[in-house]
Design a protein around this nucleic acid. Structure first.
Length: 368
DNA sequence: AACATCCGCAACCGCCTAGTG
DNA sequence: GCACTAGGCGGTTGCGGATGT
């Protein structure tokens, strides 16, 4: 060894392996209350014998309240495939286009399902495609990022954001930039070095700009001819019926929505099925009561506006809770608060059992 | 029923990068 | 510009459940 940096923590001092419900609760409670400004310091402050990285990963991939759980829908898979075609293994970027999904999850889905699916698909269509390919790409060395069989088959270049409500795709600036960068680098690759003039792409370009079937273009050249990414994406991607929800831009709004499932009372909350010990009690600050009231109000508005009330329904059931919970506590849902044990100061608060994942109980299991 | 193999997923590892002094 | 730190990312691994023999 001798190379590389020192480990981020003393491995002998930290626990590794699967997380227990108790650890999860500690982490959730801490993050809800204090946030996660400093992951390295967090485990100590939260009373966890874990590496900060491990805490971060656990939170991001599993405990975050805005996570969607359950199988990927066909639309989501399609989105992953499209984005992967365009930007490759940029899992976090892909994830940023798919609210409620994590990079890790997407990566796993890709490696276990989609890659195989595509191999089968490609081998089925390879015969017919190879004919077309040879006629189109003969002039290009085309080791470009978007090889001809990687040109999106339908509608969207990669710069997109999946909209859960409409199953539509819109673009984020970050991805767009990436995409533009890749386009320009590809253009360099395909240009004939002997030709100092720009490649004449005007006819192709106008085709792109005028067509609603960008995906039918089979040639990488024609694809790469689309310098005006903005224009194209606006033309092609923006469906009329799309309701755009600014996922990242309005943090407070999402916070409100999330809070419904997280902050319940300014009192101590005992977790159902756990013995009353200090470890199993989560204290919520007084200010959170206001949050809950506000959140409830907003959630009503939100539900009316976007019809997402089901988001806040109970997510008990297969595939919603982590697998290891079944193993540890098959009879107990550690994320269901028992409100019988709460001394309510705000008499109007009556939210029933709301769990720590206000997430969509999509289909059933996560495969597995 | 017992064992072997496969498969999916959560977690870990190590590198990269941005921020800071 | 350099060193250091912490967060983020993508690749990989290992466990446990599912399936096959």
């Amino acid at each position: 060894m001798g190379k590389g940096r020192a480990p981020c923590c003393d491995k002998s001092q930290v626990k590794r392996g699967p997380w227990s419900p108790d650890e999860d609760l500690k982490l959730i409670a801490f993050v809800q209350k204090y946030g996660h400004e400093n992951w390295r310091a967090l485990p100590k402050q939260a009373g966890l014998q874990r590496c900060g990285k491990s805490c971060r990963l656990r939170w991001i991939n599993y405990l975050r309240p805005d996570l969607k759980r359950g199988n990927f829908t066909a639309e989501e898979e399609e989105t992953i495939i499209r984005l992967h075609k365009a930007i490759g293994n940029k899992w976090s970027k892909i994830a940023s286009c798919m609210p409620g999904r994590t990079d890790n999850e997407i990566k796993n889905v890709w490696n276990t399902h989609l890659k195989k699916k595509l191999v089968v698909k490609n081998s089925e269509s390879s015969a017919s495609e190879s004919k077309l390919e040879s006629s189109i790409t003969s002039s290009s060395s085309s080791e470009s990022f978007l090889s001809s069989n990687e040109v999106p088959k339908s509608t969207t270049p990669a710069t997109s954001e999946f909209n859960e409500q409409t199953s539509q795709v819109t673009m984020t600036n970050e991805i767009k930039k990436d995409y533009e960068k890749q386009l320009s680098s590809n253009i360099e690759l395909v240009k004939d070095p002997k030709d100092s003039s720009n490649i004449s792409l005007s006819s192709i370009e106008s085709n792109i700009l005028n067509t609603s079937q960008i995906g039918d273009m089979a040639s990488p050249l024609s694809y790469l001819g689309s310098y005006d990414v903005d224009n194209i994406l606006q033309e092609v991607e923006k469906p009329n019926n799309l309701i755009e929800i600014p996922w990242e831009s309005d943090y407070d709004l999402w916070n409100f929505i999330e809070n419904i499932g997280t902050y319940q009372s300014n009192d101590q909350v005992q977790l159902e099925g756990f013995q009353a010990s200090d470890e199993n009690i989560i204290n919520f600050g007084e200010e959170n009561v206001q949050d809950v009231v506000e959140a409830k109000k907003w959630s009503h508005e939100f539900e009316n506006e976007f019809g997402v009330g089901e988001k806040l329904e109970s997510n008990k059931g297969d595939g919603v809770l982590p697998k290891n919970y079944d193993a540890v506590e098959p009879e107990i849902d550690p994320h269901a608060f028992d409100f019988n044990d709460i001394t309510m100061q705000e008499s109007e608060l009556d939210f029933g059992n709301i769990q720590l994942w206000p997430s969509l109980p999509q289909n059933n299991n996560l495969g597995g």
